[in-house]
Write a protein that binds this DNA or RNA. Structure first.
Length: 429
RNA sequence: GGCGCGGUAGCCAAGUGGUAAGGCCGAGGUCUGCAAAACCUCUAUCGUGAGUUCGAUUCUCACCCGCGCCUCCA
């Protein structure tokens, strides 16, 4: 993953804070990685623009040699779009008919064409600047991504991701620079995620519907709920993120976890049935083909729920044998490699954010729901089991008032106790 | 204004030229000391209008509404 840790805004803000651009961006990178981890997103390999300044300079020199870049009097470099006829293909823009020079910034009087974009910016007083083979200055936006992607993945690679907002001009410019340089196709596929709406409106600070992952968790929502909601809608579609939806997602995750819990906690007669193994195999096949179809996560999830319903029906009918459990769990595990919500580590993650909020002095944002979930470890497993044993003995003696009181105590501590025909089982909320 | 994407049940949301997945919520039922879990049943003709077709939610056109980009902003 490319981190652009130097651009106009970063330079301005870091100067304002009196820190280097690296120091300024480090805090955002850190928060990003922490929030990603909260959502169980694998940690990416990071590459930073400020660590590739010389490579960028060399790249620009190469472009100039090929005639795709030119130097202006002040020492800036621009990309010559007129030399790259495919420009605009990704964003499906036709620049042929556009009047050139209709709007030229006073700063840019030296550009050959208003559309030409900056590869390298000449130094300005008070701004971060590097000494390089093409002179002093700093990179423009775009060039870092071409250089770093190619360094890690080669001149031509399969998949380039990004938000839909980056299609133009950022990705268009990346393609132009990269392909001008190598003569090869830069990325074979572009993966552009659509922006989400919040309660039907675009997320913006002025509308007051701007939420970070931490904000949601402070309100008591689980990381797994957030992750599930975000994966429910295929990436290409616009997701409407709502708080009702978050609650619905929590229920869906519960349903999945309950099923897994049922499989791993109940007793089954020995043997196997071909029907269940077939169900598991069909489900895996359906999930894979859904994901192969442009990452249709909604269809993959529907496949899993269909399996759940059929398997639960079979479980109710006592038609599941011991050796059927493994294929069912196997299908779930494979599903969860993608969706990542079955492993219940919500509580420690929420606890970490609770601690963070306290350290940051944001106590007033901590919701009762967060306290309840993050604090539900007030009973250790041993203590729960002890209470459970008491409860069961009271139940056997038909002292239901006593057993119900124990159940209420556990429920208040976030422990859900279930009595089944296979005995008692429990889980944390 | 230009380019692109979308409007499907109370909510979220797949999908197909031949009468519409899944999840949540709600109602009824089964099971159950209670509670929970689970299962069963019920709830849509797919933004509006017109056209193509034996037949359209699925194709075409128009219109309405939402979103994105069109800026050295991210």
């Amino acid at each position: 993953m490319n981190i652009t840790d130097v651009d106009d805004k970063i330079i301005r803000n870091s100067a304002h804070d009196g820190v280097t651009v690296q120091q300024y961006t480090a805090r955002f990178t850190k928060a990003f990685l922490e929030d990603s981890a909260t959502l169980s997103i694998e940690r990416p390999i990071l590459v930073r623009a400020t660590e590739h300044i010389n490579e960028m300079a060399d790249f620009i020199a190469g472009l100039e040699k090929k005639g795709f870049a030119y130097r202006t009097e002040d020492g800036s470099y621009y990309f010559r779009i007129a030399k790259f006829p495919a420009y605009g293909q990704l964003s499906k823009k036709d620049f042929a008919g556009m009047a050139d020079g209709a709007r030229v910034d006073v700063d840019e009087y030296e550009k050959d064409s208003a559309r030409d974009f900056a590869l390298w910016k000449a130094p300005k007083p008070g701004e971060a600047s590097w000494e390089t083979s093409i002179g002093p200055g700093r990179p423009g936006w775009h060039i870092e991504c071409s250089v770093m992607s190619m360094e890690k993945l080669g001149p031509s690679f399969d998949l380039h991701a990004g938000g839909e907002d980056l299609i133009f001009p950022h990705h268009e410019n990346e393609i132009a620079q990269s392909e001008a340089m190598t003569g090869q196709q830069f990325a074979h596929y572009w993966f552009h995620a659509r922006f989400l709406l919040v309660e039907g409106q675009k997320m913006s600070k002025s509308l007051g519907n701007f939420f970070t992952v931490r904000d949601l968790i402070l309100r008591g929502h689980k990381p797994s709920s957030i992750r599930w909601l975000l994966t429910q809608v295929p990436y290409r579609n616009q997701l409407n993120f709502t708080f009702d939806g978050l609650k619905a997602a929590a229920s869906s995750v519960e349903k999945l976890r309950n099923f897994r819990f049922r499989l791993t906690s109940a007793q089954f007669p020995a043997g196997s049935t071909s029907a269940i193994a077939q169900l598991a195999n069909e489900t895996i096949a359906r999930i894979n083909s859904a994901l192969d179809d442009d990452l249709n996560t909604a269809e993959a999830q529907a496949a899993m729920f269909d399996m759940l319903r059929k398997a639960n029906t079979a479980l109710d009918a006592m038609e599941v044998r011991q050796d059927d459990v493994r294929p069912l769990l196997g299908a779930m595990d494979q599903f969860d490699e993608i969706f990542g919500v079955l492993k219940d580590d919500d509580q420690p993650k929420m606890k970490a954010i609770l601690d963070w909020a306290r350290a940051e002095g944001r106590e007033k944002e901590i919701s009762p729901e967060l306290l309840e979930i993050a604090g539900s470890a007030q009973f250790s497993d041993e203590q729960v089991n002890k209470k459970l044993a008491e409860m069961e003995s009271e139940r056997k003696s038909r002292n239901f008032n006593a057993s119900d009181a124990l159940r209420a105590e556990l429920t208040a501590a976030g422990i859900i106790v279930e009595n089944t025909k296979d005995g008692v089982r429990w889980r944390r909320k």
